[in-house]
Amino acid sequence: MVGISPEESAVWRMMQRAQVRITRRLEAELLAAHDLALASYDVLQQLSEAHGRLRMNDLADRVLLSRSGLTRLVDRLQRDGLVQREACADDARGLYAVLTGAGEARLVEATPTYLRGIRAQFLDVLEPEELEQCTAMLTKLLVAPR
């Protein structure tokens, strides 16, 4: 049986709590100022970075949602006029999520709030050398074999 020490368990729980605390604050700020959930912001941002369109499968790989969760979120974004779906010309079963003009405008409007939140909740809390250490640790975690 694999076990972990109380200290290791405490570090794991602290990391989880820090991530939840930061994302909850970011989400609260985005909802209050722009009526935009953090997951919705993430979808709009990913689409914008991909020049306004991504296949749904590719979008699902880029956001932290299940495929079914992404489908429901894109449904809501489509109802709000922020995203539309388009059929893939080369794959009758495939769909693109496409950023609309309204979606781009909402993203542009919400980005300063998002960036201020990241700065206040994360970047300004850490010293430059701590950010470097954080980058090194997170990189190590992201490239570790599964």
Rank of each mutant, 00 (worst) to 15 (best):
E104S: 11
G3R: 11
V43Q: 01
D80T: 01
T135W: 13
V143N: 06
L131H: 05
T139E: 09
A120M: 06
L64K: 10
D58W: 04
L115S: 06
C88N: 12
P128K: 03
H51Q: 15
M15S: 09
H51P: 00
D91Y: 06
L107Y: 04
R53W: 07
R13S: 10
A89N: 13
E104R: 14
V98R: 11
A136W: 06
D42E: 12
A136V: 05
E29R: 15
P112L: 12
G103L: 03
T139Q: 10
R116G: 03
Q46K: 15
R93D: 11
C88F: 03
W12F: 14
R116K: 11
D35N: 13
R106G: 00
V2H: 09
L47I: 04
L73R: 09
F122S: 05
F122G: 08
G69F: 05
G81F: 07
E49S: 12
E86R: 15
E127T: 12
L44T: 00
C88M: 15
R17G: 00
L47E: 05
L115R: 11
L123S: 08
S48Q: 10
S5E: 10
E8D: 08
Q19G: 11
L126Y: 13
V43S: 03
I118P: 01
A92L: 12
H51I: 05
A10K: 04
L47P: 03
P6H: 06
